[in-house]
Design a protein around this nucleic acid. Structure first.
Lengths: 195, 195
DNA sequence: ACCTGAACACCGTTCAAGT
DNA sequence: ACCTGAACACCGTTCAAGT
């Protein structure tokens, strides 16, 4: 056979995919390099060709997460009716967390040391800068920094609480996570005097 | 000697203290029962007298965290000037996260399965109910649920972002985490039309 | 860029037998 | 409510020697 037991150039991507699957199914402590290798049918140290340590694989998952989040926010804004851009952006942020809870959690867990993987800081900053411009457009310049931080904190906290299932049934009135997020963001936008 | 190498009734508390210290110093993956035991000079399976699994020790740390957070919020509100209660409560929440970052992160990391440790859900609910009353007093009843979730999401997200060091220097203007939190909360209260 | 296979220090957890 | 000590399956990581 000319096809041996060898795998080819996409092992790196397969490692990331299998890593995210393990994260979703079993949680962070069960994501071991050995288990990922086992799932892919490669030897227990094949992953070391692509990631020098387990933390490096986690960092790569986080990096990909930042990229995907930025991409989704961008698409949401460009597809939104005028005046709805900020709500669309916020909803995209929450929806990303709901769709990929394990990655979202890992991104903000503090488990991956961002000083050891400096590329992560740059990715997370790019997305923030985009929303700063949007907020400046929508709300004007007074207290811009506080407004940006508030908006970010609101959607970030909302995502976290929904992910954790912390919102009690009595407050949900049967609404899905998505519906709840939209209601909260619209309610806040209304209270701030612009809907 | 009548005092042998035995330890006494407070081993449980010592395990929690040492566990939090390890969490702070080395992170979650370095918090092992064996290392905690080593630090306290007890045998590697002495911890099993108090916690049936490693997860049970983590759950106990989280439970204690909820209690301490609720206590702080209560004190902050009772010591606040009238009209400042909500800001004081929010600041207490953020300050708890800043003072005990490892515990705060663990509480909301999803690493500790709250369905496996049902007492955790009750603790986190109690604190939420208290803030619901306060918000009803301050803002009236319209869209109360959305207001409660917004307020919680805002302070929760703010705490997370500060803990992660995600707020870029350009937005900080040299302010400490605490000062930044206060500025954001006051700015939001002002924008909502009540300061 | 992968393979096999050995090796090391670590871990959670369980057990047996003590005080 | 602790102790010692053995045991098991697992892990990250490193190495040597291959294709």
């Amino acid at each position: 056979m000319s096809t041996s037991t060898y795998h080819h150039g996409d092992l790196r991507r397969q490692l990331l995919t299998a890593g995210e699957a393990l994260l979703v199914e079993q949680g962070l402590s069960s994501l071991s390099l050995r288990e990922v290798a086992r799932r892919l049918g490669v030897s227990h140290n094949a992953p070391y060709r692509h990631f020098p340590t387990r933390d490096a694989l986690l960092a790569a998952l986080v990096e990909q997460g930042y990229e995907d989040l930025a991409q989704r926010a961008k698409e949401a804004v460009s597809g939104a009716a005028s005046g709805e851009a900020m709500i669309a952006r916020g909803l995209a942020y929450v929806q990303f967390a709901l769709d990929r809870p394990a990655i979202f959690r890992l991104m903000f867990s503090g488990e991956v040391d961002e000083t050891a993987f400096p590329q992560l800081r740059a990715k997370s900053l790019a997305s923030l800068m985009a929303s700063t411009e949007a907020i400046a457009d929508a709300f004007g310049e007074e207290q811009l920094h506080e407004a940006v931080i508030s908006a970010w904190a609101l959607v970030h906290g909302l995502a976290q609480l929904l992910l954790d299932g912390q919102v009690p049934e009595a407050m949900r009135s049967g609404r899905s996570d998505r519906q709840l997020a939209e209601a909260v963001l619209r309610s806040m936008a209304f209270a701030l005097g612009r809907h």
